[in-house]
Design a protein around this nucleic acid. Structure first.
Length: 157
DNA sequence: GCCAACGTTGGC
DNA sequence: GCCAACGTTGGC
């Protein structure tokens, strides 16, 4: 099992939005960055995913989700009227992928960006790198252990 | 609101 | 293939 992190601006889609979705699950549509897309394509059912609120008050990891469905073509790339429509993508060779994410558990409290920056063992974490804008990133098992430890949760699900 | 950092586009 | 210009992200 691998570990990941996804960012979302809560003003567009928050942890609470995920939690209140049918089956606590949503399709993670709209990723339009190749590196992030490649990570989506690597995800396996059951992989664990940290859910991060960006441009938020506070900026923080707020919960754990899991991969409920592995990568499939992002339908929004074919919808002409959709904001994320990509005229260069074809049905034969879809350019963009999405996965389904399911909320597993909320953190007891948000684990804020300053706390993450202060934590020993997270200095290499993609989220914390200067200028990192990647909306989907890989998390190492050690980083996962540190983050869930700080949050005071086990990963029992 | 500012602006550094980044990814993408397009002219050459 | 290079790289300047541009648009976007996202912390502050």
């Amino acid at each position: 099992m691998k570990y990941w992190l996804v960012k979302s601006e809560p003003s567009s889609f928050s942890w609470d939005d995920l939690w209140s979705s049918p089956k606590r699950t949503t399709s993670w549509e709209g990723v339009r960055n190749y590196q992030a897309r490649n990570f989506l394509r690597e995800m396996k059912r059951g992989d664990r995913v940290l859910f991060y609120h960006s441009s938020a008050e506070p900026n923080a990891i707020v919960g754990i989700a899991e991969v409920a469905r592995e990568a499939y073509p992002d339908p929004t790339q074919f919808e002409k009227k959709h904001e994320m429509y990509d005229p260069k993508s074809t049905r034969d060779d879809p350019r963009w992928s999405t996965v389904d994410l399911k909320a597993v558990r909320a953190f007891p409290r948000p684990l804020t960006l300053p706390e993450l920056r202060d934590a020993p063992g997270l200095d290499k974490m993609t989220l914390l790198q200067k200028g990192s804008r990647l909306s989907v990133s890989a998390v190492t098992p050690e980083e996962w252990r540190v983050v869930t430890g700080l949050a005071g949760v086990s990963d029992a699900g």
